[in-house]
Amino acid sequence: MAITTYAALLRGINVGGHKKVPMAELRALLEGIGHGGVRTYLQSGNAVFTADHGDEESLAAEVRAAIEERFGFAVDVLVRDSAYLKAVADACPFPAADLQPKQLHVTYFSAPVDGERFATIDQASFLPEEFRLGDRALYLYAPEGLGRSKLGEQLARPALNKGVIATTRNWNTVTQLVEMTRG
């Protein structure tokens, strides 16, 4: 089987002192379960690794189980291959090159989501903020950044994300993960 490069996106770690996962320990954990080329990006749960077995779902389950065993708490994990990460970045419906990275975010989902899920959101009332759906992804344009985004607040409501794992990254992280997983 060919070796593939993946990114593991961990949801909700190292936020406000909760669910602490030191990046050095995460790298060692990933190496310990047989992955190569392990690197991390920032403290917010982004790891890149290579694997010669499995698929995104089985790799995510493997990483999730290893984290729970090592750290004693559950963490949602999405694993995406390099081709998917590049396709998501390339498909951005907003003019990323013309925006500040803090203005653009991608929420990655564990499964496809359709517009019906977000039908209760009156997008016009949030302008100039906007969102668009992609392949297991949601693109959010928030001119004042995510921390001040009223639309981002609405999109993060648990009812809208029921049944899927959702984790958001800013555009800097999106593009950095594309670079880190490049062949």
Rank of each mutant, 00 (worst) to 15 (best):
E116Y: 15
F94P: 02
Q100H: 08
A87L: 03
K86F: 02
A89D: 00
V75S: 02
Q123W: 13
H105T: 07
Y84P: 00
D122G: 08
D81T: 03
D90P: 07
V88T: 04
A119Q: 14
Q100Y: 10
V106M: 01
D81K: 01
R117I: 14
A89S: 01
V113Y: 10
T107D: 07
Y108T: 06
P95Y: 05
A119S: 15
A87D: 04
P101R: 02
V79L: 05
D76C: 12
L85M: 00
D114G: 13
Q100R: 15
A119I: 15
F73R: 01
D76T: 09
D81Y: 02
D98A: 14
C92H: 03
G72C: 02
V106K: 00
V79K: 01
C92V: 08
A91P: 08
P93G: 11
T120E: 10
V88W: 01
F71I: 09
D114W: 12
Q100G: 15
F71C: 08
Y108N: 05
G115V: 13
V79Q: 01
A96M: 04
F109T: 04
Q123N: 12
V79A: 03
A96R: 00
A89M: 00
Y84I: 01
Q100D: 12
V113T: 13
Q123I: 15
A111T: 11
A89T: 00
A87E: 03
F109S: 05
S110N: 09
F94V: 11
A87H: 01
F94S: 05
V113E: 09
P112D: 12
F71V: 04
A97W: 06
G72W: 06
T120L: 14
P95V: 13
V79I: 04
A111V: 07
V77Q: 03
Y84H: 02
Q123P: 13
V88E: 01
A74W: 03
G115Q: 15
R80I: 03
V79P: 01
A74I: 09
P93L: 12
D122Y: 07
F73S: 06
R117M: 13
A96Q: 02
K102H: 15
P93V: 13
H105M: 10
K86C: 05
A83V: 04
F73T: 11
A96L: 03
D122I: 14
P95C: 08
L78S: 03
Y108M: 13
Y84V: 01
L104S: 01
D114L: 04
L104P: 01
C92A: 10
A111M: 07
F109M: 11
R117P: 14
L99I: 07
C92E: 06
V77C: 06
D81H: 02
L78T: 04
H105P: 09
S82Y: 12
G115S: 15
S110P: 05
P112Y: 08
Q103E: 14
S82K: 12
Y108G: 04
A96E: 06
Q123M: 15
R70E: 11
D114Y: 07
F118H: 10
A74Q: 11
